[in-house]
Amino acid sequence: MTDYRVVPGPEAYFTPSAARMGVVLPEPGEAHIEGVIVPEEKAMEYAARKLLDAKNPTLHPGPLVLWNWNEKAAKKAKAIKVLAECIPARIIPMPDYRPKYPKINPDVEINPNHPNLTIWHNKEDVCLFVGVHCHQANLSLKIIRGGTDCFTIAMCAQAGHEDAMLSFRDATAEKILRLAEWVSKLKGVPFVRPVDEKARGDGGDRYSDNVFVKLADGG
């Protein structure tokens, strides 16, 4: 195991990739904090605490959840909104990966080619990426680690990110809601599960992953 720790930067101009420094990805059911593999639940608590302690916690949803292209994306979008309201955190989207030189507006968007601009501009001290394609997330996370002192969290739907300071894997709407539940727990307030608009009053079945609870069920 490596001694290298993926901690907030600014690390250096040519930040090494964490993978090159020996950091490995978590197995299913696990996550990593600063490069150390931990059970997912521990990372949930840690991430919730980080987001709550932050001065300017910010969520950065990417195209995979910004666009309503399938049911999973729609559910994740709802869950992200719940998380943002629980913390509360600002949401700044990453709608595009294209290098939009020279007119990125750091007030309204973040872009993987110069994520540091948005982070500096908004004085973000903790941020969470979700719904960003992995190769673009890697690029972004490394630039952020290289040039800012922001703590990065990746809510990754695939195998996780070594270059984030904390990374979940296999993200689903349920997992995002669990993080929101942790936030509420640490705040000492009850967590109210969102209602699925589609299921409301239509007598339809619950979604199989039981993320959104119908009104009829008292959820």
Binding site: P61, V65, L66, W67, N68, W69, A73, A74, A77, K78, I80, K81, I91, I92, P93, P95, N105, V108, E109
Partner: peptide, 18 residues
């Protein structure tokens, strides 16, 4: 049909996408 923004994020999307 797929070029739709999730309603939760509609207001925070930069205007050119809307």
């Amino acid at each position: 049909e797929k070029i739709q923004i999730c309603p939760e994020f509609y207001d925070i999307m930069p205007p050119e996408y809307r």
